[in-house]
Simulated assay, not measured.
Amino acid sequence: MDESEIESELLELTPIGADGQSAILNLDKTYGTDSFLFKGPARFEKNEWKTLGINDGMDIGSRGAPFFFSYKLGSHMSEYIILPTVVSATWIFDEEGKLAEIRVIKTVDGL
């Protein structure tokens, strides 16, 4: 699947406007709690969302500050490169704690 197809499936699971706590519950149920990678603050700047680094101590249940979290969705062997490709996604939430954007990332795990 390409990134847009994965994103479409994730939007069914966690629709835009969903709150962070319900998104985490759905993702933990679907991918398992071990798939959670990290979380941190976010900011809307120059018409796009930016993640501002990892802060695993951050309380994402509180309102007032945008935040993000990421999950590993799975891995597979690439058709073209003989190295595993890791698929993860990042969910970005606005200052009201509502889902604003999902980003799917594919990373080739190699040297």
Rank of each mutant, 00 (worst) to 15 (best):
M1F: 06
M1G: 07
D2G: 08
E3I: 14
E3P: 06
S4P: 08
E5F: 11
E5D: 15
I6R: 10
E9M: 15
L10R: 02
L11K: 15
P15C: 03
G17I: 06
A18Y: 09
A18K: 09
D19M: 03
G20D: 03
G20S: 10
G20Q: 05
Q21L: 08
S22G: 12
I24D: 08
I24C: 07
I24V: 12
L25P: 10
N26S: 15
N26K: 15
N26P: 13
L27C: 12
L27T: 07
D28L: 04
T30Y: 13
Y31A: 01
Y31R: 10
G32M: 13
T33R: 08
D34F: 07
D34G: 08
F36W: 07
L37V: 03
L37G: 00
F38Y: 10
F44C: 02
E45V: 07
E45C: 02
E45M: 06
K46C: 01
K46A: 07
E48T: 06
W49V: 12
K50L: 12
K50Y: 11
G53H: 04
G53C: 06
N55D: 13
D56A: 11
D56L: 14
D59E: 09
D59V: 08
D59H: 06
I60G: 11
G61H: 07
S62H: 09
S62C: 06
S62R: 11
G64P: 03
P66Q: 05
F68D: 00
F68Y: 12
F69C: 04
S70V: 03
S70Q: 04
S70C: 08
Y71P: 00
Y71L: 04
L73D: 05
G74V: 05
S75R: 11
M77V: 06
M77I: 08
S78M: 10
S78A: 14
S78I: 12
E79D: 15
I82S: 13
I82C: 13
L83N: 13
P84A: 13
T85K: 12
V86D: 08
V87H: 03
V87W: 01
V87D: 11
V87M: 09
I92H: 02
I92P: 00
F93H: 02
E95C: 00
E95M: 00
G97C: 01
L99A: 11
A100Y: 09
E101G: 01
E101V: 01
E101Y: 07
I102F: 09
R103E: 09
I105H: 05
I105S: 06
T107Q: 09
V108Q: 11
V108E: 13
D109T: 03
G110H: 14
G110Y: 14
